[in-house]
Structure formats: C-alpha cells, structure tokens
Design a protein around this nucleic acid. Structure first.
Lengths: 231, 231
DNA sequence: TCGGCCCTTTGTGTATACAGTGAAAGGAGT
DNA sequence: ACTCCTTTCACTGTATACACAAAGGGCCGA
C-alpha cells in the first residue's frame, strides 16, 4: 500500500474516532514525523481530507480538523434524509429484491442478539452492508458518491451517541423496516421508513447532547500526547 | 495566486469546455511542462480534479479526463433534481425573500432581451447568481457543498446543448418561476418549479444528443495539439 | 519468420532541499 | 511601564532528485 494511502486512512480514522479533536492543527512536518513518512504523502492525505470536509484550512493557522456543531448535526441529517430517501426509493424501484430480503432477515436476527458487546460491532457492520447495498442498487453512481462523501461525517457523529441497548434494538427494527420496504419494491414506503429511522436517530443524538452547545463524544477518548507536543 | 491553484483552474476549465476530451491522459510531466509549473502543483490539481470526479485514475494508464455518457447525464439530473428541489424548498422556507424577488424580475427582464450573443453570457451569469442564492439561502452548508460539487459536471453537460433562442427564453421563464416561488415562501411550489425546469432541460439535452451513444459537444471544439503529443 | 526474453524508456511515488512569507517574541525608545 | 519596531524562527509552497515499476520495442534464437 502506498504511503499516502496509509497516512490518509490513519488520519481519517483518528478524526472519525475523535482521537484528533476538532480544531487540532495538522501541521505537515509534525504529522510526517508522527506517521513516519515524508511531507509529500502527508500533503496528499490532507488534500483528500479537506476535499471530504473532515479538515479545513483555517486562515493562517494551516490545516485543522473540522469543527462539528449542533448546527452541523442538523444540516448533515437534513441532507442525509434527502439523499437516503431517494436512494431507498430508487433501490426499491430498480434493486435486487433478494439482496434486501436477506438483509431484512439479518436485521431481525441481529435485533434478538444485541446483548454481547461484540454483537454491537457486528451490528454496525450490518448497517454498513445495508448502506453499501443501497449505494449499489440505487443505480445512480453520483447519488452513491454523494452518500459516500457524507458518511465519514455521520460516523464521526455516531461517536457522540451512547450505545444504549434499547436504542440499538429499535434501530435494528427501523433498518429491518427499510430493508423490507425495498425488498417489497415499494419506493414510497422505503422513503418513509428512512425518514422514520433518521428522525429517531437524530432525536437520540440530540438527547445524548442535551444542553451542550459544543459537541463531545459520549465516552471521553484517550487523548494522544501529540497535541501537547504541537503547542 | 498559487501555482497549484492556477494549474487546477486551468485544467478544470479545459475539461469543462471540452478542450480536454474525455479519456485524455493527464500525465504529470506533460501537464507540468504545458502549464509551466513543476509536478508538485500539478499533482495537487489532479488530486482535486479526481475528488470532484472530473478526472479518474484508469488502471495503469494514469489519470484521465472522466468520461461522460448518456447514463451519466440521466444520473446527474436525477441527483440534481433531488438536491435542487430540497434547496429550493428550504430557501423558500428560510431564505431572504427580497433577494429572490429581485432575481425573479431580472429573469423576466433577461427573457425579453436574449437576442444578442453577449446577452446569452449575461443570462448564464444570472443563472449562476440564482444557483449561488439558493446555495446560501437554503441554510444548509452541506447541501450547498453537494450542489457545488455537482455543478462542474452540469457545466460540462451544458456544452452538449445547442443554444437555441426559444429554449433559452423558456429556460428564463422556468427560472423566473422558481425565483418567484421561493420569493413567495412556497416550498412545495418552489420544488415543483424546479422539477418543471429540470425536466425541460433534460429533455432538451436528450434531444440535442438524439441517436448518439457517446456524448459530444454541439459545436466542435478547437482541439489542442496536446493529445497527439501525448500519444 | 515468429516468438520469447531482455533492455530501455517513461511515468509515478517518495524524499528532500530551498525560498518566501507571516507570526511571534524580545529589545529599545518614549 | 507600555508600545512599536526589528529580527528571527517556523511553516508552507514549489522544485528537483532518486527509486521502482511497467510497458514497449528490439534483438536473438529456434
């Protein structure tokens, strides 16, 4: 794998998991030293992160990790609903029904076995499979591209929520409903089920952040020592 | 302005205006020599173009100008309608009505004076102003970002259409209807007017390309000699 | 004459050197 | 003591050098 790819994936992961907090300065020389590559791959990685919106140039301070406010949360979900409703509807109209029928059954099965912590990991992987299936079966590469560009931001938001078992179970049922509607070839119902799921998800996220103006992850993250070095 | 910015803007413009045809190989050393900068800014420019989807890596052939098929045309308009309907609706709900009232009057005025060729330029600039107004007044930075990422592809498609005066006049009326609906604060009507405009626009584009499997610009473009050098 | 192997050339990926600019800190003057 | 100016440092932007990989062509052998 190329060094620029490694730098990109590592920085991306660290931003999504909040190990690199919003506002952290991503100086080229510092990151190059930390990641063990030269400045050139780091520059390419930062370019890609800026194109995704995970990083931004902040005046003269250089490249910083993008901020994430309650306003961002609401705007991201507004766009997400628009895109995912359309994708679900198109997949219901054009997609491979058997694929979503299988996903439907997997979600029903996952709901019953969401007790163990390792099952939560598997559940998130299943959600990712449904996302990928909608991307592919909606038959619109540009719509899928927009959704893929949106997803890293949503993954970052996910870390804000507490993983309450009852919410995960409800989420599984909502995903099952989406998959069922797509499998039935019902675009209107698929879009409606998407709205239902996203409304519940947004409400849960809002509740997790109740009162706070600035967003912060649910479980405090083991902070790296690098930002103190970067002073 | 930075050299990488100049390289990016020039390559972008040449791709949008079809002076760099789809499939053209964008070799780093070749473009560096042609644009009068070194490989480093060219690399950054190519990265940005690939992030936008205007260029893509094609196996071992390196970076090439992205292809554009009839399928792309239809998928781009499908996504465009989804995003612009939402943006128009949000702008109608939240936006500054006076701004769209003024744009409405400008479109009515433009329709009456679309005879001179320089008026066509001014008309396209006015369309750009409406787009920018929707971006800003929809109150959703992520939606605006998605729209801005979509627009270079649409600009490339625009070159496929013949600028027939009657179509431009109809387009002006359709844009006026959108601006009026937003100015009236009517989200449903704004979305509907957007669908009306895009349907007519897509139909006109399809008609301009009737019968051809591969897309080509309406007026043959003065081809650069560079692709023959790049063999 | 045809096929296979080797060599050369071209292009990308990475590292590093150099220059220009902006910011911050310290010293001097009022 | 405070403010302003100067100097220095650090960072980005750009250029270039080097290594490695692949593809194409030419040559040699069968």
């Amino acid at each position: 794998m190329r060094a620029s790819d490694r730098a990109y994936h590592q920085l991306r992961q660290e931003i999504i998991t909040w190990r690199l907090a919003p506002g952290t300065v991503l100086a080229e020389v510092e990151q190059a030293g930390r990641l063990g590559v030269s400045r050139t791959p780091v520059r390419e990685a930062l370019s890609r992160l800026m194109a995704e919106g995970l990083a931004a140039t902040e005046g003269r301070r250089g490249v910083v990790v993008a901020e994430l406010s309650v306003t961002d949360l609401e705007q991201l979900f507004e766009l997400r609903e628009t895109l995912e409703r359309k994708a679900a509807g198109l997949a219901a109209a054009r997609g491979d029904r058997g694929r979503f029928r299988r996903l439907h059954e997997q979600f029903l099965h996952a709901e019953a076995s969401l007790d163990a912590p390792e099952e939560v990991e598997a559940y998130y992987a299943l959600v990712g499979e449904l996302d990928a299936a909608l991307d592919e079966e909606c038959g619109n590469a540009y719509l899928a591209l927009s959704l893929r560009q949106l997803r890293p931001h949503l993954q970052r938001l996910r870390r804000l929520a507490h993983d309450q078992p009852e919410r995960l179970a409800a989420s599984a049922r909502e995903h099952a409903a989406i998959a069922a509607a797509v499998a039935d070839g019902n675009p209107g119902l698929a879009a409606a089920a998407t709205t239902v799921h996203l409304s519940a998800s947004l409400k849960h996220l809002h509740h997790s952040q109740s009162g706070q103006g600035t967003l912060a992850p649910a479980h405090s993250v083991h902070l790296t020592t690098h930002e103190s070095e970067s002073r």
